[in-house]
Design a binder for these strands. Sequence first.
DNA 1: TAACGGATAAACATGG
DNA 2: CCCATGTTTATCCGTT
Length: 380
Amino acid sequence: MENSSQTLPPSSPSCPTTTTFGGSLPFSSSPQQTCSSNRISLPLSPISFPPSPTSLSPATAESIHSSSPLSHCTASLCLEGQNVQCLSPANLSDQDDLTCLSWLHQRGNLLPLQPLPKMTPLPQLEFSTPSQPLPPASSKPPYSFSSLIFMAIEDSPDKRLPVKDIYEWIVNNFPYYRTASGGWRNSVRHNLSLSKSFCRIQRDKSQSVGKGSLWCVCPEYRPALLEVLRKTHSYHSTNNNLMNKPALLEGADYGVPAVCDSMEISDLSHTLLLSSPQTLTTDNPTFGENPPCPLTPDHEELVTMESVEYQQEEVCEEMEKDPLSDSGYIELHYYQSHQYQYLVLPGDTELDLETVEILQLDAEAQEAAGSLLDLAGGGY
DNA sequence: TAACGGATAAACATGG
DNA sequence: CCCATGTTTATCCGTT
């Protein structure tokens, strides 16, 4: 991301704008982020890192700083290391089963909008009555197997699925595969094994039901997967006019899963997709042979906007400018430098941070998080 | 034309 | 032994 070069680790003199307020200021009382324009008001979702509910008490919020003109609104969120032990892999306890984004759902009720029952057909089916026959499954979906797997995993409450459930998700959402020969399953397994985007997790033996491991999306590759998915969806939405017309209603040969519609910014759900740094460490015992992806210094995360007030035309304008803006995500860059953790909003994010509120940074924030699917619903 | 990515097929190993 | 799962290799095809 080009923004990476704009947001250097603030420990260095190159980040002179970072201001530390000391240890007494919780995010709930954080100062308003002010920029020079009112394009978009963005109350950020409460941000917290997993895993321990106590790991990020209000005392963990140490400093917030933001500054920049409109086109360079940059907010740095600095967490003093001594209060964010959870961010240190060394402090992980065995019970902190942090794998990818699963922590988002560990506290329950993390799907504030309309959590979908597991393996429920995607919301696209909302447009068809139960009596309607499924569309002909003659055409192959435009999505690669990696995208299909990605969508399946993202659609799961725990952001992890056994391969069997991945099969099931694909079959449920893409009728083509109901009648396709079994070779595609081989392809799914092949992709899981070969792609670096997916991590295999050993099942919890105590509650192991079924064979095999669980698969999750490697957080480091999530942006790329999202981008591929977005491009594919965008391309076919444009060409097939699927953006405004549900595939099933149009009799399309393949459905567009709700996950794809999470690419739409028009849905303003409460979703927080900050993966935890410790899930990226090799210390995590829950990973199997496939080690988790290493945490890069400028590890990119995606955070959706919550309760964004906007004008529609402005959103459309932004969609053209930022490939990910229409995904409903704000790109964050994660830094760890010395005793601080930094989350940096991209400099070119056209967000007016005037009314941004960084809310209390504790475990309750996780309740504001949801799955990608929660973003669906406004896309059609 | 070569390089690349993705899809497909197949062989093989492992474990329930 | 059967089957599901996981890994690896090879090949083909379309795109760039």
